[in-house]
């Protein structure tokens, strides 16, 4: 095992205890970590590897396979635009364009001020309200291109 001197934080120990002995718990543990930190920091993975006695490569293998897990800290507000079929047909690509233009970022990137992160996702399950986007989980339905600016400025103001 590698000899990094990172000390284990109490959260990680509690988490590991909760899932210890349960088979196949790695993904569940990663979910809890991402919920806590907003992403999976490298040193946390390292601690996890030591605590659970799983090689770091095994952990990274899993993190990188699943789209849901992030390795970099997201912006303060994550904008998730749905590009599921229903939203695609109702003009979601225009919303993506608009956000890209307004914030000067690409998919999966964070704006320079660290405020917004743009994700493109598949179906948020509100296809009846297509096109749909969400900001930190708050869902906006039947969004028009012209409304994007207003939604974003709401969060800018709050900041």
């Amino acid at each position: 095992m590698c000899s990094t001197s990172t000390t284990t934080s109490p959260e990680i120990s509690t988490l590991v205890e909760k899932w210890r002995g349960k088979k196949g718990s790695l993904i569940m543990v990663l979910h809890e970590l991402q919920n806590h930190y907003g992403y999976v920091p490298r040193d946390v993975s390292l601690q996890l590897s030591q605590q659970l006695d799983i090689p770091l490569a095994r952990i990274y293998e899993v993190i990188t396979f699943y789209n849901y897990f992030k390795l970099d800290p997201p912006g303060k507000y994550t904008i998730a635009i749905c590009l599921g079929t229903a939203c695609y047909l109702k003009g979601a690509p225009d919303l993506v364009d608009e956000v890209k233009n307004l914030l000067d970022i690409g998919e999966g990137q964070t704006s320079k001020d660290g405020l917004f992160h743009l994700d493109v996702v598949r179906c948020l399950g509100c296809c009846g309200l297509a096109p749909v986007l969400s900001v930190n989980g708050q869902i906006y339905g039947k969004v028009k291109r012209s409304e994007v600016m207003g939604i974003l400025s709401k969060y800018k103001k709050e900041d």
Binding site: G84, T85, C87, Y88, C123, G125, C127
Partner: peptide, 11 residues
């Protein structure tokens, strides 16, 4: 896992 984008019966 409801993967089909644009379908939400299971949800």
């Amino acid at each position: 896992d409801e993967g089909d984008p644009g379908a939400y019966m299971d949800r």
